[in-house]
Amino acid sequence: METLHPRIRFVWSILSLVLALVCGVVVVFVDRLVVTVGSWPAVVVAVLIAVAGVSYSILRYRRWGFALSDDAIEFEYGVVTIVESVVPYVRIQHVDTQRTAIDRVSGLARVVVYTAGTRGSDVTIPGVSPDRARTIQQRLRERASTDDIDAV
């Protein structure tokens, strides 16, 4: 299994630290404006969310893997619920590479694989290097088009 770009750990961790900070500020506002709870709950909330967020980010990174095998692309991800999914190349409708604002700042990209299936069948590989994203897209395009079979 191929792992994500290690830098994604820091991106996810920073995002959860921002979330922790926001929650802490909310608690401070509640303290000032609604009910006086003192200043320590804000710190506790922020620290708890920060610790949980950072460890979640690291676990998430450790769990994430994908592999381009002979007939299908395989994914494994998830912390609370572990998902292992297999998408046969012939079923791929199209493949996107995307870069959100955060991706661009951190120099990463994501690959989105679409199928004709229903719920949860579109899989996103978050956090790969832009070059790698392009080569994955390229390879998937070649694989998906080799077979002249309806994807439905």
Partner: peptide, 28 residues
């Protein structure tokens, strides 16, 4: 079949269980 998905929640992992989903191209 469109995709095959094997899924295990925290509770299922403890009991050694899993959900196996066959996704098809349905519209509902």
């Amino acid at each position: 079949l469109q995709t095959i998905r094997l899924q295990r929640s925290v509770f299922q992992r403890r009991l050694g269980l899993a959900d196996l989903t066959a996704d098809t191209a349905s519209s509902t």
